[in-house]
Amino acid sequence: MAAYILRRLWQMLPTLLGVVVLVFLLFNWVGGDPAYILAGKMSNPAQIANIRKQLGIDESYWVQLWIFVKQIVTMDFGASWSTGETISHVLSTRLGPSLTVLVPLTILETLISIGLALGVAYVRGSLTDRMVMIACTVGMSISILVYIIVFQYVLAYKFGWFPVQGWGDSFSENLFHYALLPILIGLTVSIAPSLRLFRTFFLDEISQDYVRTARAKGLSEPRILWVHVLRNAAIPVVTYVMSNLPALLIGAFLIERFFSIPGIGREIILAVERSDFPVIKAITVYVAAATMLFNLLADLLYKAIDPRVQLK
């Protein structure tokens, strides 16, 4: 087991290296020049040159790449160019708000989707099944931008059910007050695709031999679904949820902007607008590493759920 984990971690290195080089090329080589923003509106060429020197972007690309690699190895990305805030502080403070929305969202989304998917899988082929699927398809066809604008206006402002936007200091206030509408919007856009996907996972399992065997043994249909099918379908479900998690961190940027949640997604958009490379690079590398780790974790969970799986 330990050997397997080590080997997998070792295999991540080339991928991470690829990510590093790609990110470096995309942002240092062709990306904007932050010096012009940092120089203010009364800049002159001498001052631009000085800022480039202070930031180290006048060095050759090889030197800059080497510095970047060193930063990754030491996990010290320095400070943001526009605010002077250390990257570690940026990440540690923005992660909390993002997770406050994303963790409940993911848990709720998974539970609700599994429940509904099992339900429709149970009545597969019926009118209910078809109606639910059509409703999901319709729900998925509307842009998240429209959901945010309409929900914020109608549910929060017109009906007053939720705060319009905002973020507080205490965790419970954030979770039970401010994060509610963002989570609701998140659920609205994410349940439909998950439900559709999970339904196919369950249907895949239902057509397997062991289900026929179970039926032949006279087990009740709910029992077959809830115990046998769910257990086996849990593998693709877990992979899907796990591998989606790191990407969600950034994908929630629209929600974070509209609801003024100081999370990672909003931060990265801001960093791109400011050409704040240290922040962009650090977040990319960390999210890439997290994506790989979560994939590994998903594989390990496979094993835990289904001992038959051979880790190779």
Partner: peptide, 9 residues
């Protein structure tokens, strides 16, 4: 950041 959020608050 967003106009709609500011106005509604």
């Amino acid at each position: 950041v967003e106009d709609q959020s500011r106005w509604l608050s």
